[in-house]
Design a protein around this nucleic acid. Structure first.
Lengths: 179, 179
DNA sequence: CGCAATTCAGTTGTGCACAACTTAATGACG
DNA sequence: CGTCATTAAGTTGTGCACAACTGAATTGCG
């Protein structure tokens, strides 16, 4: 292991070290290496999670994002697409076709609001509500699959939420100028 | 907040409580609720991370998965598609078109192995190697965006790796029978 | 009222993830 | 040697994520 760099690959990063963002004395060369591992980990964890859900949700006929939508609908009932997007951090470009598929599957209905005709409200059908009972087994099986205790899960969740908040804020600052 | 359930939504989950997997005395009804928050968190964190990378990598002309591929190539040089897939947990269905785009961008070349004509080896072009210098700034900016210390990041990484390992193992057991 | 700006859902186009399949090369075995 | 299982890469089809855009409804303001 630790294969080292192939010839011609060591790219002498200029030694400019902005001291405000560097939390430690990590050589510049090692950053890509470390980074390497970290972003792999997050990416891989997300996909592994998705994979386990895929297996469990297959018998419910749901994909993972569809399951997330149903969770919101089971909890809140009739919900405008806009609010679904806020809960799930998804825009209409993702939700519109997804909801169309859920509607085609007979799990939700979409009704244009009478008060504001721009808005479309989504509500679970009887079949959609009934699915909740079968879905109730999923969380426990997911928990078992992680091998984590409840405390560990909750702790991980709070870290991830903090991460998400920081990243969202950074993305906003990064966007137009601000630099 | 805490909107409560809309009428007709409370679905009396049967009180069967398998004691082997329940780490705590959490009411069955609350599982979906808790689950709700947890899977949202992971999903959202992954997408938030992706969003920040998207912004930073835009000026390099890379997507996040393409960046992951380049990280492997920068570290290991010439690598067969098969091994890339092992590093990144991706199959040829994902990698083939991705590598085709990287090749079209002039960042990598693909060469069929002479020793085993089934295998295709990927290697960075001069342009691809040169890109590494500009990419060296990315990890630091990502770190800054997270607001996490190096220790926190490393700790989070180990948790996520443990999670991924457990989930992968569970997915294998879940698959055919094993029940 | 009349018109511009905003809001909301939907569409289009690109790219990733993955299951299922195809094709070609390799290796094992009789 | 010939046959068959295995392996590697690629292709096809479905679905998600997101940017950019369209179009209709609403709101704000003069």
């Amino acid at each position: 292991m630790t294969p080292g760099y192939p010839e011609g690959m060591t790219t002498e990063v200029p030694p400019s070290a902005p001291p405000d963002t560097a939390p430690d004395a990590v050589p510049e060369e090692d950053w890509l290496h470390l980074e390497h591992q970290i972003c792999f980990s997050l990416h891989a964890a997300s996909r592994a999670f998705n994979g386990v859900y895929r297996v469990l949700l297959k018998e419910l006929g749901l994909t993972y994002p569809q399951y997330l939508v149903m969770l919101v609908l089971w909890e809140h009932g009739r919900t405008p697409v806009k609010r679904l997007g806020e809960h799930l951090r998804l825009d209409s470009g993702t939700l519109s076709p997804l909801l169309k598929r859920l509607e085609a599957a007979g799990l939700v209905r979409r009704e244009r609001s009478t008060r504001d005709e721009r808005s479309v409200e989504v509500l679970p059908t009887g079949q959609g509500v009934a699915l909740r009972e079968r879905a109730a087994l999923v969380p426990r099986r997911i928990m078992a699959a992680t091998g984590f205790t409840l405390e560990e899960i909750v702790d991980l969740r709070s870290r991830l939420d903090r991460l998400t908040g920081a990243l969202d804020a950074a993305a906003l600052e990064e966007a137009p100028d601000c630099g």
